[in-house]
Design a protein around this nucleic acid. Structure first.
Lengths: 170, 170
DNA sequence: AAGTTTACGTCAGCCTTGTTGACACTCCAA
DNA sequence: TTGGAGTGTCAACAAGGCTGACGTAAACTT
């Protein structure tokens, strides 16, 4: 597929011409940007004896209040044991509330408590501040492109989750 | 700064207007896309008893052959103990060569062996395939925007590393 | 009514990859 | 010659992934 050097530009229309070098730069941009993306919440979490896994759980519970454990599992893409460890501490610390399902009593619906919402605010404010600055600096067209490329990069199931969340917030 | 609802659009020019919802979607796009971004190499590494940390080391050694341990440390943003553990296995397995510096014999310059280069190819081919597909699907303007936003999201030192790598490949 | 499946929790153990702290060695530079 | 920088390494620990196994309750199926 690639031999480490740039492929010949001969065949293929100019719009689709992508050198290995451009793609490598794209990888590196993702790597460095993701570091920045997580840096601010990570700093806050460090003081609280929580980690990125807690942040993710809190984020998505806030985003879809009343979601079930199974649903969260699918979104986060981890095992129930991993998630359970995180949820247990969040419930014990009073940040998350677990409510037995009304129709189906096997299910547990998850909600943030007020305290949980406060932490979510704090974390996402930190993350959004950076994103807002970056979006502003880059401009609206760049932001549109950013989202388009990211969506194209997702696995299909992940894109489905992403779109479901997007639509649910209408 | 934010109260969970969309801020009033009144003050601030239209180009800079960004709702919390847009920013949240941006976060989620980063989260899901990064998962896709790492999925393919992760699958390959799994069979080899290596992890993402090995991939990162291999990537940047390939990108800047002869780089020193300290330099790699700065780029990767981990402790020397963490990096050393990874490097040790890579050297033991004959994927990386460590060469004592000529001018400064304290430094170790790192190179990929042929076997190391082969693995790097395999890993980055997998990663690039997805990126290439995404870039193609999204189109050139979107890709430009994607890069602009990612660069704006980086920490300044990371952006410096990123640019140094970018320029070094000219 | 009995059996199966689903949703969830939990225990135990393992791996990778991050951390801190301590110590030793080499070697450059003042 | 001494201080400090660059490097390697040992030990110990924690977060957060994983698998496997087991239990319970509820729901579904036959």
């Amino acid at each position: 597929m690639s031999d480490g050097r740039s492929p010949s530009p001969v065949r293929g229309d100019t719009l689709l011409f992508l050198t290995d070098e451009q793609l490598r730069q794209g990888s590196e941009a993702m790597f460095f940007a993701y570091r920045g993306f997580t840096a601010d919440p990570d700093r806050i979490l460090q003081d609280l004896a929580y980690g990125r896994a807690h942040h993710r759980a809190i984020h998505f519970i806030n985003r879809a209040p009343g979601t079930t454990v199974n649903n969260l599992l699918n979104i986060l893409g981890v095992t129930k044991q991993s998630l359970n460890r995180v949820l247990r501490t969040l419930i014990a610390d009073g940040l998350v509330r677990s409510v037995v399902g009304r129709h189906d009593k096997r299910e547990r619906h998850l909600y943030l408590t007020e305290e949980g919402q406060a932490l979510e605010q704090k974390l996402s404010d930190a993350q959004r501040a950076r994103l807002r600055a970056a979006f502003r600096e880059a401009g609206p067209e760049a932001v549109a492109g950013f989202r388009t490329v990211l969506e194209a990069m997702m696995d299909p199931e992940m894109r489905a989750s992403y779109n479901r969340l997007k639509e649910s917030s209408t």
